[in-house]
Amino acid sequence: MTVYFHEEDLPAGALADGPVAVDTETMGLVTTRDRLCVVQISDGGGDEHLVRFKNDSAYDAPNLKAVLADPDRVKLYHFARFDLAAIEHYLGVMAAPVFCTKIASKLTRTYTDRHGLKNLVQELLGEDMSKAQQSSDWGADTLTPAQQDYAASDVRFLHRMRDILEVRLEREGRTEMAQACFDFLPARARLDIAGWAEHDIFSHM
C-alpha cells in the first residue's frame, strides 16, 4: 500500500480500469466560498493518489477530470453530495455515476444513527481509522504526513464497504431505492451550489 502525492493533476495511467473511490478536502463546508484543496482517488488495488491544488490553481487537471467525468466509471463516495458539488464547482465536471456509502448505510443500517465513515469502517470491516486531521488546514503550503495519511484513508476502504453494502441493499429489498437516490445526487449537488442547500424544495412549505 502506497500513498502517492501529486501537484495539480493525476499522472496519466495511474489508475486501473473500473470503479474509483473519491473524496475531497476543502477549506470549509461552504462550497462556493471554501476552495477545493485535495482530491483523493483510489482504484481499490491498495494504493491511494492525492492530487493537491494550490491557492492560485487554475484547476486544469485534464487527467483527473477525464477519470472523474468518465460515464463508464462508478465513483464511490462517503457523503457524495458534498464531494460532487466541490468537484463540479472547481473542476467543472460532474463526477458521476455514483455509489454513496453514507446513503447505502442509512438505507440498510436502520438499527443505528451512526453513519460516519469511521463507524462504518469499524462495523463492516473491523478496522479503525483516525479522524484527528479532519479539521486541519488543507490549504497549507505543505501537507503533513498525518494529513496525507488521513486523506488517503478516506478512500482506502470504500471499495470493500461498497461490496458489503450492496449485499445488504439486496437483502433488504432496497437496491432500486438506493440507485434512485444515487442517480439524483448530481441534481442535489447542483441545487446546493445554486443556493438551495438548506431548503427542501419537495416540502409543502
Rank of each mutant, 00 (worst) to 15 (best):
S130A: 08
R73H: 02
K106N: 06
V22I: 08
G45C: 12
I41C: 09
A66F: 11
T142V: 12
F182E: 05
S153D: 13
F182V: 04
L143T: 11
D163N: 14
D60Y: 07
H159D: 07
F79H: 03
R162V: 01
D200W: 07
F5H: 10
H115E: 04
Q148A: 14
L29S: 10
R73S: 00
V38S: 00
V155I: 03
R35M: 09
T31C: 13
H115L: 08
A151D: 01
L64N: 09
A80N: 01
D192T: 08
F157Q: 10
G13I: 07
T24P: 07
F53A: 06
A104Q: 12
M27K: 07
E176L: 12
T26C: 12
A61F: 00
D163I: 05
R35C: 07
V51H: 06
A66C: 08
L15P: 05
D200Q: 10
A178L: 05
T24W: 01
P19S: 08
H49C: 12
R156Q: 14
G45Q: 11
L169S: 06
I193L: 15
T175S: 13
D70T: 01
A12P: 04
L191I: 08
V39G: 10
H199E: 03
F5I: 11
P186S: 13
H159R: 11
Y77D: 01
A197M: 03
A58S: 10
D70C: 04
L36W: 04
M161A: 09
R156T: 11
S57H: 11
N63T: 14
P19H: 02
V20H: 14
R109N: 11
A152E: 09
Q147C: 04
W138D: 03
K102Q: 15
H49E: 08
L169T: 06
A16F: 03
R52Y: 05
V30R: 15
V98Q: 12
T101H: 01
R168S: 03
H6S: 03
L68P: 05
A197N: 03
V67N: 04
